[in-house]
Amino acid sequence: MTTDAISTDVIIIGAGPVGLFAVFELGLNDMKCHLVDILDKVGGQCAELYPEKPIYDIPGLPVVTGQGLTDALMKQIEPFNPVFHLNQMAESLTKTADGKWRLTTDAGTIIEATIVVIAAGGGSFVPKKPPIKGIEEYEAKSVFYAVRRMETFRDRKILIAGGGDSALDWTLNLQPLATKLTLVHRRDEFRAAPDSVNKMRELVAAGKIDLHIGQIVHLHGEGGQIEAVTLKPDAGEPYTIECDTLMPFYGLTMKLGPVANFGINLHQNLIPVDTEKFESDVPTIFAIGDINSYPGKLKLILSGFHEAALMAQQAFRYVHPDRKLRFQYTTSSSDLQNKLGVTAE
């Protein structure tokens, strides 16, 4: 936790492909960026949802994977030394006495800047919550969707639900600490890394983990303390399993989150912008990529790149009001080439 505010030119909310490319366009125009993202890695949907999937419609790249595009963008923006605040949610946005924006994250990071660029795509990635009746009353008491500190789970009777990497990783990490660990998945196949699956199978064979195949349909307990779950197998009768901690790991979903409370005009959870500057109804707050809307909008990465370039022109006028905006090409401008750390032939 820090109470010292970081000062920069531009805060970018969202480190997906469009947020990353915005660093490049802003950097060419002499603006420094800090990026905030709720994920623990950069790349947004490209890195979280489809790192291995090929993308075929990035100009000049006949085929690139989500992770490949992310890596290439990170290399491209390296000369501009962007600062990343990962694993943090942009929580509140206020104005300072001298007219700058002050963004506070849920980790206590405070960043002050002239410009805010919202490149938050479909919103914040948050854990999927099983639609089991009454689960809310257990949340944060005995139902957890993430692990902040492993020690919290020592000597507990843990039930982990899910079949992906998060479910398997936490099964393996928490098993030594737990009094008892039960893994529940709806089928006896796991899409997690084969190595994790093998280790889990070995622990099951050694009697150190219980594995049950089925879906959780009911929670038992009171006052927020879970005592058991009812499991429905594919065939046969439902039965109960005792536990004092339930950890569902079903992947992530997207929610707009606190951006909705930033005082910007929203329409159907999107931020309407003009198509000259991609600015919201609040001057100096811009929205680019999947989160904005305007007539003819296409939710494509390439549209976001274009929006980033135009946004950067207007941002320059706010950040450097005393300077004249000069349009230059990277092919011919020694000024731009210096910024990129390259020398022309």
Binding site: K128, G162, Q215, D234, Y250
Partner: peptide, 13 residues
């Protein structure tokens, strides 16, 4: 598709 369906709830045959 079978793998991705693991991220769904109330999955039926």
């Amino acid at each position: 598709e079978r793998d991705t369906l693991d991220g769904g709830f109330e999955v039926e045959p």
